[in-house]
Simulated assay, not measured.
Amino acid sequence: MKFFIQAGGLVGALAVALGAFGAHALKAMLEASGRSETFETAVKYQFYHAIALVLIGLLLQRSGPDAAKLLGWSGNAFMIGVVIFSGSLYAICFTGITKFGAIAPIGGLLLIAGWILLLLAASKIA
C-alpha cells in the first residue's frame, strides 16, 4: 500500500521537475532538435501513471487478497512501464539516438497491462 503511494509521489515529483526543466532550461535544445513533443509525451505519461500508482496504493487499503495480488502486479507494471516508456523517450531527447524508440512499445505494453490488471482487480474489490 504505502510503497505504491510513495512511488507515485516520487514519480509525480520527478514528472513535475522534468516538465519544468524541459519547459525552461531545455526549451531551446528541444525545439532545435524537434523533440519538444516527444519530451512532453514522456512527462505526460509519467505523470498519469504517478496518479495511477497512488490509486493502486489507496485501493490496496480496501482490497482482499485476490484483488491485492492483481493490484500489486498492476502497480509493478506501471512502474516498470514508466521507466521503459518515458525513459526511452527522454533518452531520445537527450541523446538524439532514435534507436531508443524501439523499446518504447515494451513500456507502452506494460502500461496497458497495468490498466487491464487494475480492471481485473476492480472486479474483486467488494
Rank of each mutant, 00 (worst) to 15 (best):
residue 4 F to M: 03
residue 57 G to T: 04
residue 99 K to R: 15
residue 124 K to T: 15
residue 67 A to M: 04
residue 123 S to Q: 14
residue 7 A to D: 09
residue 122 A to C: 13
residue 16 V to T: 04
residue 84 I to S: 08
residue 62 R to E: 03
residue 43 V to I: 07
residue 91 A to R: 10
residue 35 R to Q: 13
residue 89 L to H: 12
residue 5 I to C: 03
residue 45 Y to G: 03
residue 114 G to P: 00
residue 119 L to C: 09
residue 42 A to C: 10
residue 70 L to K: 12
residue 63 S to W: 11
residue 124 K to G: 14
residue 82 V to C: 07
residue 56 I to C: 04
residue 121 A to R: 13
residue 109 L to E: 02
residue 64 G to K: 10
residue 101 G to M: 04
residue 90 Y to G: 01
residue 90 Y to D: 11
residue 64 G to D: 13
residue 65 P to W: 03
residue 86 S to R: 05
residue 94 F to T: 03
residue 52 A to I: 01
residue 7 A to L: 14
residue 9 G to Y: 00
residue 21 F to V: 09
residue 77 A to D: 02
residue 16 V to W: 00
residue 44 K to I: 01
residue 72 G to S: 06
residue 65 P to K: 11
residue 125 I to K: 09
residue 85 F to Q: 06
residue 66 D to R: 13
residue 117 L to W: 10
residue 36 S to I: 08
residue 124 K to M: 15
residue 1 M to T: 12
residue 23 A to D: 05
residue 40 E to H: 06
residue 126 A to R: 15
residue 2 K to A: 09
residue 36 S to Y: 02
residue 77 A to N: 05
residue 15 A to D: 11
residue 118 L to I: 10
residue 16 V to D: 01
residue 55 L to C: 11
residue 52 A to C: 03
residue 3 F to G: 00
residue 85 F to C: 10
residue 72 G to L: 08
residue 51 I to K: 01
residue 17 A to Q: 02
residue 23 A to P: 03
residue 82 V to K: 06
residue 38 T to G: 02
residue 123 S to Y: 13
residue 51 I to Y: 01
residue 81 G to W: 00
residue 82 V to L: 04
residue 6 Q to S: 08
residue 106 I to D: 05
residue 88 S to T: 05
residue 58 L to N: 01
residue 110 L to R: 06
residue 57 G to E: 04
residue 5 I to E: 07
residue 58 L to M: 07
residue 113 A to L: 15
residue 3 F to T: 08
residue 123 S to D: 13
residue 51 I to V: 15
residue 24 H to I: 06
residue 24 H to D: 01
residue 52 A to Q: 03
